[in-house]
Computed example of a mutant assay.
Amino acid sequence: MYHYTDGGLRNVWLTNGYIEHKTKYGNGVSFQDSDGLTQAICKALSHKPGKLTGAEFRYIRSSMLLSQKSLGKTLGYSEQAVAKWEKNGKIPKAVEFFIRSLYLAKHNGNAKVCSMIDVLNLIDRIANTKIIVSEARNKWVSKFEDQELEAA
């Protein structure tokens, strides 16, 4: 079995799906279907009984490509607060519940949640971007940075 420690995880072991090999720099390992591996780990962490460690919380957050800043802003906390949770593992219960639920909804293909995560991922990049709104056929459409958003 291989002890998988990427992202600071300490409690994940792989029974297969990896290949160990020697390189000129020492031993190496490659993973088959790394995206599927990440999803399986995040799903297990989302269902894990008990509290998440800071590394586990960070692993789930990172798998959704959420920055500390955008997650913090969304929940009314600072980027530094999120970094502190990930470092010391003292994550507020509501925040832990939110990240688990958000991941599971995304993993289950909830289109609204997937769209919300996409917007959260843009928070850091579009703060000062011009928004262009136009009307066509009695429907308003907005866009920024070549990404279209339908008006609700």
Rank of each mutant, 00 (worst) to 15 (best):
Y2G: 05
H3N: 15
H3S: 14
R10Y: 14
N11K: 04
W13M: 09
W13E: 12
N16G: 02
G17W: 12
E20M: 07
K24D: 04
Y25S: 10
G26I: 12
G26E: 10
G28W: 15
V29F: 12
F31Y: 15
G36H: 09
S46A: 14
H47C: 05
P49W: 11
P49I: 15
T53A: 04
A55N: 14
A55P: 03
E56H: 09
E56P: 11
E56F: 12
R58V: 01
Y59P: 00
I60Y: 10
I60F: 11
R61G: 09
S62Y: 05
S62V: 04
M64P: 03
L66K: 08
L66S: 10
L66H: 07
K69I: 02
L71V: 09
L71C: 00
K73E: 12
T74A: 09
T74R: 14
T74V: 01
L75T: 09
L75Q: 10
G76P: 02
Q80I: 07
Q80T: 02
A83G: 03
K84W: 15
K87Q: 13
N88P: 06
I91T: 11
K93M: 10
F97Q: 07
F97P: 06
R100P: 02
S101L: 04
A105D: 10
N108L: 13
N108H: 15
G109A: 11
K112R: 14
V113E: 04
V113M: 02
V113H: 06
S115C: 14
M116S: 12
I117R: 09
D118A: 13
D118V: 01
V119Q: 02
N121H: 05
L122P: 00
D124K: 00
R125C: 01
R125F: 02
A127G: 04
N128K: 10
K130F: 05
K130A: 00
N138F: 00
W140K: 10
S142P: 00
S142I: 01
K143N: 08
K143V: 01
K143P: 01
F144V: 00
D146Y: 15
E150S: 07
E150W: 15
E150K: 15
A152W: 15
